[in-house]
Design a protein around this nucleic acid. Sequence first.
DNA 1: GATAAAAATGACAACCCTGTCACATGACAG
DNA 2: CTGTCATGTGACAGGGTTGTCATTTTTATC
Lengths: 201, 201
Amino acid sequence: MPSETFERLAENKKKAIFDAAVEEFSNHSFSQASINQVVQSAGISRGSFYQYFRDKEDLYMYVLGEIAREKMTVAAATRDINPHADFFETYRQMFMSILDWAESQPRYYRISMLMDYDDSAFIAKLRDQFGGNWDFFRQLIEKEKQRGRIEPHVDADIVVEMLFALNKSFFQDYWQTGSRDQLVDRMESSLNIIKGGIARV
Amino acid sequence: MPSETFERLAENKKKAIFDAAVEEFSNHSFSQASINQVVQSAGISRGSFYQYFRDKEDLYMYVLGEIAREKMTVAAATRDINPHADFFETYRQMFMSILDWAESQPRYYRISMLMDYDDSAFIAKLRDQFGGNWDFFRQLIEKEKQRGRIEPHVDADIVVEMLFALNKSFFQDYWQTGSRDQLVDRMESSLNIIKGGIARV
DNA sequence: GATAAAAATGACAACCCTGTCACATGACAG
DNA sequence: CTGTCATGTGACAGGGTTGTCATTTTTATC
């Protein structure tokens, strides 16, 4: 966590440092991000930086925390999804709201993307923790099974794992090509195939 | 490509360098691999290395080439897959033969894995080139559609993309946890779901 | 204004890395 | 045995990184 000295800083200075960190972390993976770049871009001295943060990991955690806080807004918006919508519709809606977020905050989104492109132990641990709350979907599938809308023999875990993998892969592609339409198409098509494979008819 | 000087080297020396490179590239992503480590581990001087290879990229390409040559054997074994087997069975068999290869050559396999964990331009280009020949499966799906074993409205591309994404994701997980059984389970289950979604009944 | 506490600074040490090059050592031919 | 050519070597320059710390500057308080 940042030092108390940092907390006491003027808002605009804190923001300058945060922005510089976001800039660096959205262009380089954690391992390759350079504190030198950050301090230069933020317009502070090297010594100051180390008075605010213990090291690069500390800074990274701070940035992630701030982003998570801002993300709350999105999460809140996600909550008022039609509770009567079925699993597939719910997934679709959540997917779209994540996509909207990615497009409205491309730098934040790139940071999360770059987490997948780093093999340091630190980031690996983070990946596991922040893995996203896919548990929600697992429970939703179980409910649908009880309601008879999904075949009862279906393993909810594997469906969630599939969606997770597809989500990650399609988003990564989108990150490079930048075609929103293709991303949405892929999501729709793959979801329909899965639906065909597990829905009770 | 390696210099002629390198080609003229004694076999055991060439092998020592190759092994050292494999060791380094299977433990660090390309960007983080160090030539210093390689020369030390191979027991040659820094100066010699640069007499053999232009730079790290050159060495990497050499290693990849050698691995590809050895991989031919696997590819050959793959060819005598039952031509009458359906798409899903063929996929299963190919999957298993890749898994076998990964288990017999874990260091080679880790190198290919680490290619996905690198964001350098050089590796990005390679990823696109060596993307694997999934075209084979696309054609197989088209054939199955004609034979009436797969729904004609199915988009072969999306199925291939799904399999590719799942393959990558499951293998990555396997790489970290190392559970072969789980990997095979996941492949079987997800393939069955896709089958349910696209097969003509 | 004087004093004390807080914050900012950048030179520095220590450690990585790469690519080069003048020189040393080997091997082989005459 | 000597000269030539192929090969091996490691010190070196030039670049990067991180984390520290003695010193200066700013800010707040009396």
